[in-house]
Design a protein around this nucleic acid. Structure first.
Lengths: 134, 134
DNA sequence: TTATAAAATGTTATATTATAACAAACGTTA
DNA sequence: TAACGTTTGTTATAATATAACATTTTATAA
């Protein structure tokens, strides 16, 4: 039964495979072009797969880039606590795994006492490589 | 001279006025419809104003909603450290002012030692009102 | 004050991102 | 097998954002 829950449909698997073997985040229409040989023909097919993959935590959306990246963080299986570093120069994106950070943010509550079920954090700067080249 | 720097152009002022008097974030095309009586006719005129207003920190973009909100935080004048709470139910958005949080995030560096010039954090949950109604 | 550079404007067209609506097939479970 | 939820396929369209180019306004400084 638990195996069923992890069973991906055909389109979902195709899209996930592509995203997982990519070096960085992929955009929806770039995904579409790359899976057309596999029989996926329309944007909706891609978006529906993405929606499901996000929901189950296999991928994340990088909101500032409208792009999708595979989850590499075993701690965020339910996809409710995500943090990324994004290079302003080369656009390299990396998911941040940091227990302190995620603990800090998961426990954060604002002045009104509102607590949160989910957060997404995007950091911007220059990655090591790009900093050296400056 | 410093006054010149803060001087907004006509279109920028029109767009900013609208966003500032709004109760929540506005979408670009909703802004467009609402400023057409003021003579702004095309999306680009809106997007250009938005771009400038973001750059100088007068407004922020809520990335997960593709919407724009006035800055209410004197501490983020350069718009490089933003945090928001977003209600999943009523979509109410509020900028979070919290010195500890911003200090924590501004000083954060990842495992590789990469430091960041900018971050954007979006929290999701139920606001007080919506929590009560459940 | 004039030239010149930088910023802003106006405009048309188009690119990019995402969803609506509907019909059909599939997989699971009662 | 009947019923349900999920996934698929498909066409059309909505929503978001930028390219390219010509012109005008504003700031700077020679």
């Amino acid at each position: 039964m638990s195996q069923k829950l992890e069973q991906l449909s055909k389109n979902q698997q195709i899209v996930l495979n592509l995203i997982e073997k990519a070096k960085g985040p992929l955009k929806a229409y770039s995904i579409l072009y790359n899976v057309q040989k596999k029989g996926i023909k329309a944007p909706l097919q891609v978006y529906r797969a993405l929606e499901k993959l996000i929901k189950i935590g296999k991928i994340h959306k990088i909101e500032s880039k409208n792009a999708f990246i595979a989850c590499n963080n075993s701690e965020c299986e339910i996809s409710n606590a995500t943090a990324f570093s994004i290079c302003d120069n080369c656009e390299h994106v990396k998911e941040i795994k940091n227990a302190k950070l995620s603990k800090y943010l998961s426990n954060f509550h604002d002045n009104s006492g509102m607590k949160f079920k989910k957060y997404n954090l995007e950091f911007f700067g220059l990655c090591k490589n790009c900093k050296l080249k400056q």
